[in-house]
C-alpha cells in the first residue's frame, strides 16, 4: 500500500486504488510486465473529453493486461501540470499519460517555460482519436446561409464577426485563427473558460460563431447550425454538413489524443500497450460508443504516432505564431 500511496500522492485520487481494493505486489523482475497496477495520468479534471476517453479505454485495457488500470486526474495550468508530472515519472511502464493536441502540440509553442518537451520527454505509444471540429453558428447569425456567405459578410464589414473559443491558445482558438487567415477575414476573439460556457454563449447569441468538437448534439436538435466540418471528409454524425474544402476553404484541422510513455520506456512494454489498445480501438462496440460522440478512433503503430506528433509540432508552431497566442 505504501508504494501505491507515494506514487499517487499528489493526485486527486479519482478511481482510487483503495476503492478498487488492490494490493500492490512488490515490484518483481520486469519479465512479465505488468506486475503492478498501471497508472494513466489524465492532465485535466474529471468529466472532460480526455478523461472520458481514458476511462472508457481503462476497463478493456485492464482486462487485456491482467492488471488494474488506474486513471489519475492531475489537472491544472492547461494540462501542463499533469504532463509535467508524467515526464518526471519513472520509465517503467507503470505511468502513462494521455497526451492531446494541446499538451503535446500547442503548449510548447505557447508557454515559454514549459516543464517538458513532448518528443524529448515522451515516447509516443498510440494515437487514439482524431476529432473533426465543427463550425457552428447560433441565433445571432441566423441570416448567414452558408460558409461562403459568412466569409462574404465578414469581408464587407470587418466588425461583423466575433467568435468564441475554449480559451486563449486552445485547439479551438487556433482552428479559428487558421480559418480566419485562410479565408482572409477579420474576427474578434472572445475567450471562454472551456467548451461548455463558450457553447452556451453561442446558443444564447452572445457570440456569432465557434469552431469546436462538442457541438454535434446541439446541431442535431436544431439549436445551432453547422456551416462546415474541418476534417478531410464529411463525418458520419453530420452527413449533410460539407467540409471546409468543399466550400473553397483549403483547411483541414483535427484535434487528437494519444497515449505517451515517459522517455526510455522499454520498447517491449510500448509494443504491448500499443497492441492491446489497437485491438480495443477496433472493437465495434467501442467504435459505436465514440462514433455517437463524433470522436474518430485511429490506432496504428507507435512509429506512425511518432511521425504524426512530429508533423503536428511543426504545423501548430506556425499556427501559434500566426495567431499571436503566446504566453509567458
Amino acid at each position: 500500500m505504501q508504494h501505491m500511496l507515494t506514487i499517487t500522492r499528489r493526485a486527486l485520487m479519482l478511481a482510487g486504488a483503495a476503492a478498487l481494493g488492490l494490493s500492490a505486489a512488490p515490484a518483481l523482475a520486469q519479465d512479465g510486465w505488468p506486475q503492478n497496477p498501471v497508472n494513466i495520468i489524465v492532465p485535466y479534471p474529471p468529466g472532460g473529453n480526455t478523461d472520458l476517453i481514458a476511462r472508457t479505454l481503462a476497463e478493456p485495457l485492464s482486462e487485456l493486461l491482467g492488471q488494474p488500470v488506474v486513471i489519475e486526474n492531475r489537472g491544472g495550468a492547461g494540462g501542463t501540470v499533469g504532463v509535467g508530472e508524467a515526464s518526471r515519472a519513472e520509465a517503467d511502464g507503470y505511468t502513462l499519460v494521455v497526451g492531446d493536441i494541446a499538451t503535446m502540440g500547442i503548449n510548447p509553442h505557447v508557454y515559454d517555460n514549459l516543464v517538458y518537451e513532448p518528443l524529448e520527454d515522451f515516447d509516443p505509444v498510440i494515437q487514439i482519436t482524431s476529432i473533426p471540429l465543427v463550425m457552428g453558428v447560433g441565433p445571432r447569425l441566423e441570416e448567414v446561409a452558408d460558409l461562403p456567405d459568412l466569409i462574404a459578410r465578414a469581408k464587407e464589414d470587418p466588425e461583423y464577426l466575433d467568435y468564441a473559443s475554449a480559451g486563449v491558445g486552445t485547439a479551438q482558438h487556433l482552428a479559428f485563427e487558421l480559418f480566419r487567415s485562410i479565408a482572409g477575414i477579420e474576427a474578434l476573439h472572445i475567450p471562454y473558460q472551456g467548451s461548455a460556457p463558450a457553447r452556451t454563449a453561442l446558443m444564447s447569441g452572445e457570440v456569432g460563431v465557434m469552431i469546436d468538437g462538442t457541438l454535434v448534439p446541439m446541431i442535431k436538435d436544431g439549436t445551432l447550425r453547422a456551416l462546415a466540418v474541418t476534417s478531410e471528409e464529411r463525418v458520419a454524425a453530420l452527413p449533410d454538413v460539407p467540409t471546409m474544402k468543399e466550400q473553397g476553404v483549403d483547411m483541414v484541422y483535427t484535434s487528437w489524443h494519444g497515449i505517451m510513455a515517459p522517455k526510455g520506456t522499454d520498447p517491449e512494454i510500448i509494443g504491448k500497450v500499443n497492441g492491446a489498445l489497437d485491438e480495443i480501438l477496433a472493437r465495434p462496440e467501442i467504435q459505436e460508443r465514440f462514433g455517437a460522440l463524433n470522436i474518430g478512433l485511429v490506432g496504428g503503430s507507435s512509429e506512425e504516432f511518432t511521425a504524426f506528433v512530429t508533423e503536428q509540432a511543426d504545423t501548430l508552431g506556425k499556427l501559434v505564431e500566426m495567431s499571436g497566442a503566446s504566453r509567458d
Binding site: 479519482l14 479534471p45 474529471p46 468529466g47 472532460g48 478523461d51 472520458l52 476511462r55 472508457t56 446558443m203 448534439p217 446541439m218 436538435d221 439549436t223 460508443r289 455517437a292 460522440l293
Partner: peptide
C-alpha cells in the same frame, strides 16, 4: 463535471 462525464461514458450527452 464528474456527473456529466459519467453520463457521457454511457453515451448520454447533456444538452437541450
Amino acid at each position: 463535471a464528474v456527473m456529466i462525464g459519467a453520463l457521457m461514458i454511457h453515451g448520454i450527452t447533456p444538452g437541450p
